[in-house]
Design a binder for these strands. Structure first.
Lengths: 228, 228
DNA sequence: TCAAAAGTGTTAATTCTACACCCATGT
DNA sequence: ACATGGGTGTAGAATTAACACTTTTGA
């Protein structure tokens, strides 16, 4: 079984999704050096010699956004085609991250050349992302859509407290569908452990004041909130 | 973003699950050298310099079982804790494979020290697998269980043709539950695209002859066949 | 003839879907 | 007053879950 240990470079890349101005958007950075200089890419970088993979992903995220908490992060999958990086044999562990709209509180954004782009626009564009990042982005989108269905992950796109209407618009944005607000309200509010009610209400969405909720501690939605 | 490219070793490990004598079982190999010499481990090995990750997993599977087709294979996740391998910094890409009972047709099994062990026994045992393979096995079991629910993956445990009763016993074995045979029969046979009927029947399970089916080409089961 | 597993029928409970309708606010 | 989104009620359709019953084989 043993034979040799050819050296690989190992990187992490992060697909950070958020909802901005009604679009599901992803954070991309412009590459400042070859290969693919000047092209948009997913934020990422080399894993350090003593660093865990998850820790590397968290670090990259913090370096690009200033965020160190308040987001969801999970491993997506690993990409290692022999020539995916022209410089050397590189394997990248891709992560999927979901966060609320960070428009306002971006602090430590050292990368001036970082930007949010609507996912749909990027995937439809003829200009491709660097490396195999288009493929990674497509896989991330698939994963995010699938997980909304059977986990409470949609709340990761919402602020600390949110209304049921805001939560519904997350589903509508990510799936590109429309959902009956009344039935959705019933399902969401009656699923035990999904939403934790607060005492407060808000009128920020217009109309009648809506109750504010916090994320529950649920792991799985069974049955799913809405059938795809 | 760039800094240095510390060298990593990259391996693949395969969790090959099958159903043998009524137990969900996994293929393990006995390590012939340090570290963890003499301990059971998941089959796996180093990715070759010009080899794709998926190809490496297929190769390992073939080396251990002689199988080169007729199984399901998907990437599970990647494990890269800094000291998971005492020899060097090693990242392993774990794969989940599902196959029918291979008791009979094992051909090129070069590894004399390979064996099938019931998953439940392994996870309950105080003797641990090598490296972090216990964790990988647990994750694989979780994934397999979850995917049975919303994909037609259960058929991967069945032979080329199979009865609905055999398929039901797959679910019962993997989940450790019992399912009403009559309701299951209805759901399975009425889900379009799930099962392809053949002209043949069999009495190999005893009782009245049962119709034989082949896997359909369906990707997703919606709604799920059985709620967990 | 009996046991065993396949397969069909039926019914009550639950859940889904599509609405009608009222509520409480900002403008 | 009215537009806007929040929230509740309800009825028909569809699905689920539980179980009676018939069918076809091997022993």
């Amino acid at each position: 079984m043993d034979q040799s240990h050819p050296p690989f470079a190992v990187t992490v890349d992060v697909v950070l999704l958020t909802i901005r101005t009604g679009d599901l958007s992803v954070l991309v950075v412009r590459r400042g050096e070859p290969p693919y200089e000047g092209r948009w890419a997913l934020p990422g970088g080399f894993v350090r010699p003593d660093e865990d993979l998850d820790a590397a992903a968290v670090r990259e995220l913090r370096e690009e956004t200033g965020l160190s908490s308040g987001f969801h992060l999970e491993q997506l999958r690993t990409y290692g085609a022999p020539r995916r990086d022209p410089r050397m044999r590189t394997v990248t562990v891709a992560y999927l991250a979901l966060a609320p709209d960070l428009s306002a509180p971006r602090a430590g954004t050292d990368a001036a050349d970082a930007d949010w782009r609507p996912v749909a626009t990027l995937l439809a564009a003829r200009t491709r992302l660097a490396f195999d990042h288009d493929e990674i982005l497509r896989d991330a989108l698939d994963r995010a859509r699938a997980k909304l269905e059977y986990t409470p992950l949609a709340t990761a796109f919402c602020a600390d407290t949110f209304t049921i209407g805001e939560l519904r618009r997350v589903y509508e944005t990510v799936w590109g569908t429309s959902i009956d607000p009344r039935n959705f309200h019933r399902k969401a509010s009656k699923t035990p452990g999904f939403l934790v009610p607060t005492e407060e209400t808000t009128t920020r969405d217009g109309g009648r004041p809506a109750q504010l909720f916090r994320r529950g501690s649920l792991e799985l939605l069974n049955p799913p909130l809405t059938r795809g």
